[in-house]
Design a protein around this nucleic acid. Structure first.
Length: 407
DNA sequence: GCTGTGGCAGTTACCACATGGAAGA
DNA sequence: TATCTTCCATGTGGTAACTGCCACA
């Protein structure tokens, strides 16, 4: 992976495919991703021009360079002179775009190499761009609907699912589909990305990342996080995993959600260079995010069943309400901040971020999603004894339809 | 600093049964 | 292939019980 196309080994790589963990030249990108319907759904984006390893998230218009989150942070951190540089979000795409379409997508990229359009079986018009909150689509395939619905979740669907309105079933379905999903950079970029100098994104974080019914299970925290445990103490004091997962419902709503959003087992600790988890945070990454404050959910992570209920032997909701994942996010730290980088973050920014986070937390609501209105309607009129449903005709102490008792 | 206690908040289990969906005829 | 029937897991809300945290003595 890197400067040279992983596929042909000749051309310079320009795009990064998360699903394939591959850096490809545009020609090979078309070649590879026109092979079948599945590959066409792979989400790709520009490759970071600085490290040539990670997918680029932003384009620095002043330096005219595409940067991954890490390089962006390194180059544009709050403490750097370039922190004021204007940056433009780089969109992901899927499908089989033409060079023209790519040019329109990445207007800042001049001199796009010509693409052998004949490589694409579907021809043009099948590109899908995943933008921050909206999706611009070129999808004109007749059968495109079948590609978009139950079998595969587009990344923005995931984002939608992560917002409070999602149901457990949707999340389960999502988890089943995550294998085929490469979460576009921008999807989580929306969730939290320090584009402003404040480096604080709690608003978006809470608004967009209300995972009410997601249960994350970590069976053995120490084993999972190893040496990062100590560092996690501060993490638990300052952050807010509940901001990520919705504390209340994380354990209460449906504790059997095995799919959830999960972590790649091998990603404990510092992400390897081959792990394309740029703006996508794995659960364990989150938990160990004292040093790796990544907000990532990689596709494979959908199956490991992590449960934060076991963070510590005595943790409860309140315990991890304040854990530090989001504090890192609030601080706008880079995904892979180098050791000691934290010290460079202004303390005022941090305190402000924490303050905003706490205020936000106060005002949060945890609305339960009712999947079957008919069942709710039935439950609403059922008679009970001490809160429990009773058989029809039996004595009850509570009748929703009338305050009277049968005995 | 340590321990015990009370208050508070959050979580979990429980109940009956209509419903939805799968399987079989 | 389409329709019907049967069966079974699921989901629904209010309450008590349980658990853990925090403040205070």
């Amino acid at each position: 992976m890197g400067f040279i196309c992983d596929f042909c080994g000749e051309q310079r790589s320009m795009v990064y495919c998360r699903s394939d963990s591959a850096c490809l030249c545009l020609s090979c990108d078309q070649k590879v991703h026109s092979a079948n319907a599945l590959s066409r759904r792979h989400s790709r984006t520009l490759l970071c021009e600085r490290c040539n390893v990670q997918p680029a998230l932003v384009r620095c218009t002043e330096e005219r360079v595409s940067l991954c989150q890490n390089c962006d942070w390194t180059g544009h951190g709050a403490s750097t002179a370039a922190s004021g540089h204007k940056r433009q979000t780089i969109n992901c795409y899927s499908g089989c775009p033409s060079s023209d379409e790519l040019s329109s997508l990445w207007s800042f990229v001049r001199d796009l190499p010509s693409i052998r359009e004949s490589n694409c079986e579907q021809g043009l018009g099948s590109m899908r761009i995943t933008e921050n909150s909206e999706r611009t689509t070129w999808d004109t395939l007749d059968n495109s609907a079948s590609l978009d619905t139950s079998s595969v979740l587009q990344a923005d669907n995931v984002a939608d699912a992560l917002v409070g309105s999602s149901s457990l079933a949707e999340l389960k379905a999502m988890s089943q589909s995550l294998d085929q999903l490469a979460l576009p950079v921008n999807t989580l970029n929306k969730v939290c990305y320090p584009m402003s100098n404040s480096g604080v994104c709690d608003d978006d974080l809470f608004k967009e990342f209300n995972m009410d019914e997601v249960d994350m299970n970590i069976e053995d925290y120490e084993e999972l996080f190893g040496l990062t445990l100590n560092n996690s103490e501060e993490l638990f004091q300052n952050g807010g995993l509940d901001s990520l997962f919705g504390t209340k419902d994380m354990s209460a709503a449906d504790s059997n959600c095995q799919g959830g959003l999960l972590a790649e087992g091998s990603s404990v600790g510092r992400p390897s260079a081959t792990q394309p988890a740029c703006s996508v945070a794995s659960g364990d990454s989150i938990m160990s995010s004292k040093t790796e404050p990544i907000l990532c959910f990689t596709s494979k992570q959908a199956h490991s069943g992590i449960s934060f209920s076991g963070l510590t032997g005595e943790s409860s909701a309140g315990d991890y309400q304040d854990c530090g994942a989001s504090s890192m996010l609030l601080m706008g730290e880079p995904p892979w901040c180098p050791p000691g980088a934290e010290s460079s973050v202004p303390s005022t920014s941090r305190s402000n971020a924490v303050m905003r986070y706490k205020e936000k937390k106060k005002t949060r609501t945890f609305e339960k999603t009712v999947r079957y209105e008919s069942r709710k309607a039935r439950a609403d009129v059922r008679r009970r004894v001490k809160g429990r449903f009773v058989k029809a005709g039996e004595a009850y102490d509570y009748d929703p339809l009338s305050p009277t008792r049968s005995y």
